[in-house]
Design a protein around this nucleic acid. Structure first.
Length: 346
DNA sequence: AAGGCGGGGTG
DNA sequence: CACCCAGCCTT
């Protein structure tokens, strides 16, 4: 009880003014929660504004094409969020007549909504007493109670959810949930929090035991793998280029890219030119090829490091159907491609 | 339980 | 360089 009183009081004084805090409309809250998954507020904010502006209702989102949704999501990453968002919008609009589900259990059925997001929406929009556990909550609770169970283990997930559920203020679940997350984001920060001004500095066990820097405990993930990407940037005499939609399971599903040749290691310019002679798009045609970036561009994802080269291929006529280079900005592309397009100035 | 999935920011 | 972010899904 003391914990919830302290944290909600802290929140009443220190909360940031954010657009999704001005509404209880579940469509907007859902939108904000999906955008903010694994994403800092400062990064997600402009995307939230853009989505609200372009898709003011769940019907607008449901009626859009996936390509338009992905285009608006471009640059935010974790694109399955956008695809699932669209799928769920169609479900709410068409199967539920536009009425958003109003309880944890039913909200959880939406694609792309897990325990955290269902709890957030159910509490914020419908006052359901269900505790959120996100990265902030893990940090705050592990420190305050000096718990060293790894947060990314199934044991940790259960343990922290149970604890949060015990602490939540049943009279104001929405305030409590938002308070503990905001507290974790701006006061109980990952690195070098200023505990001298913390309202819990007399009761926090990690502070007492000098373990702030050691908590929360997280099982380390594997190091990123290196990959070697070569993009073929065709330019024909009638100013067209080739882009292709990524299929399959990997990164950037359903986004567009230039034709890609992936190699097992970094090839010399000479070796790559040899290799490319046998490529389907080039083998029967005359062309001139030059390397755009002499040094590989290293695009870092959390699980892959992409060593990337862009090869400019001047050719009289495209070997397959292409698009005018002037239209290329209409397609959703990974930011790696987007940055090239801006730099190359098509 | 473990791994895949983005991009930006901090220390 | 490692680590983090209003996590979720698949295997």
């Amino acid at each position: 009880m003391i914990f919830s009183k302290t944290i909600t009081h802290w929140y009443s004084i220190n909360k940031r003014k954010l657009p999704w805090r001005e509404t209880n409309n579940p469509y907007y809250i859902w939108l904000s929660e999906i955008i903010l998954q694994q994403t800092q507020v400062i990064q997600g904010l402009p995307y939230y504004e853009a989505f609200v502006s372009k898709f003011p209702s769940v019907f607008d989102l449901a009626n859009a094409n996936e390509s338009d949704v992905l285009k608006l999501w471009q640059g935010l990453g974790y694109y399955s969020r956008a695809r699932n968002l669209h799928t769920s919008a169609k479900y709410v609009a068409n199967e539920l007549n536009g009425v958003f589900p109003n309880n944890y259990k039913d909200i959880l059925k939406l694609k792309g909504v897990g325990d955290y997001t269902a709890s957030a929406i159910a509490s914020i929009c419908f006052n359901e007493v269900t505790a959120v556990v996100d990265g902030n909550v893990y940090r705050v609770l592990s420190r305050y109670f000096n718990i060293d169970t790894p947060i990314n283990s199934s044991k940790g997930a259960k343990e922290f959810k149970t604890l949060a559920q015990k602490l939540i203020d049943a009279k104001q679940p929405a305030e409590f949930n938002q308070a503990i997350m905001e507290f974790g984001a701006t006061q109980c920060k990952p690195k070098n929090p200023d505990c001298s001004i913390c309202p819990f500095n007399a009761s926090c066990l990690a502070l007492k035991k000098n373990k702030i820097g050691d908590l929360p405990v997280k099982i380390k993930s594997a190091k990123a793998k290196k990959k070697y990407f070569n993009f073929l940037v065709f330019i024909s005499e009638d100013e067209k280029t080739i882009i292709q939609k990524r299929k399959g399971k990997g990164i950037w599903q359903n986004l567009y890219q230039f034709p890609l040749i992936e190699t097992d290691n970094e090839l010399t310019e000479k070796a790559f030119k040899e290799l490319v002679l046998h490529h389907d798009l080039l083998k029967d045609n005359a062309f001139k090829m030059s390397l755009y970036n002499k040094e590989s561009l290293i695009h870092k994802l959390s699980h892959q490091h992409l060593h990337t080269k862009f090869w400019i291929i001047n050719i009289e006529k495209l070997p397959i159907e292409g698009i005018p280079t002037s239209k290329i900005r209409e397609f959703a592309v990974p930011i790696l491609i987007g940055n090239f397009i801006e730099s190359f100035n098509f």
